[in-house]
Simulated scan of single mutants.
Amino acid sequence: MSQSNRAPTMLVDLGGTNVRFGVADPSLAKPLLNESIRRYRVADYDSLVSTAKHYLEETGLEVRRAIVAAAGRIDDGETVKVTNNPWAISAKQTAAALNLDYVHLVNDFAAQSMAVTLLQSEDLVTVGTLPPPLIGAEDEQTFAIVGPGTGLGVGGLLVRQGHCSVLQTEGGHAGFAAHSPEDIEILNYLNQKYGRVSNERLICGQGLVNLYDAICHIAGEKAECILPEDITARAKAGSDAMSVRTVETFAGIFGSIAGDLVLTLGAWGGVYLTGGLIPILLPWLTKGSFRERFEAKGRFRDIMEKVPTQAIMNPEPGLLGAAALAVMESGGSLLKPR
Rank of each mutant, 00 (worst) to 15 (best):
V19C: 11
T142V: 15
D44Q: 13
G149T: 03
I74Y: 11
F109D: 01
A24N: 04
Y55P: 03
H104Y: 11
A96F: 07
A24P: 03
S121L: 08
P86M: 10
N99V: 12
A137I: 09
Y55K: 02
F21M: 06
T79V: 07
L32I: 11
L33G: 00
L56I: 09
L61I: 09
A91G: 05
N84E: 14
R73A: 12
P26K: 08
M114Y: 15
I145C: 05
K92S: 14
T150S: 13
S27V: 07
R41Y: 12
I145G: 03
T94I: 11
Q141T: 06
E62K: 12
A110D: 14
K53P: 00
N34Q: 12
V68A: 04
I37N: 04
E35K: 06
A43Q: 14
V63Q: 02
P133A: 08
N99G: 01
I89V: 15
E122K: 09
P133E: 06
S121A: 15
T51Y: 01
T83C: 04
V42G: 00
G60Q: 07
L32Q: 07
D46W: 01
A144K: 01
K92Q: 15
V49E: 15
N99T: 10
P26Y: 10
D25N: 13
V23N: 02
G151A: 13
V63L: 09
R73P: 00
G151D: 08
F143I: 11
P26A: 10
K81C: 12
V146R: 02
S121I: 07
V42W: 10
V68N: 03
S121C: 00
N18G: 00
H104K: 14
V63S: 04
E58I: 01
P148I: 01
A96G: 00
L100E: 10
I67L: 12
S113A: 15
A111F: 13
T59E: 07
R65K: 15
A88E: 15
F109A: 13
I67C: 05
T17S: 14
P26T: 07
S50H: 07
A91E: 09
T51S: 15
A95W: 14
E78W: 01
N18H: 13
Q141D: 04
Y45T: 05
R41I: 03
P133Q: 05
M114F: 15
P31E: 09
I89C: 06
V80G: 00
K81V: 14
I37C: 11
D46Y: 01
T51K: 01
G60I: 11
D139S: 10
L32D: 07
R38I: 09
E58H: 10
V80H: 01
V146Q: 03
N84F: 13
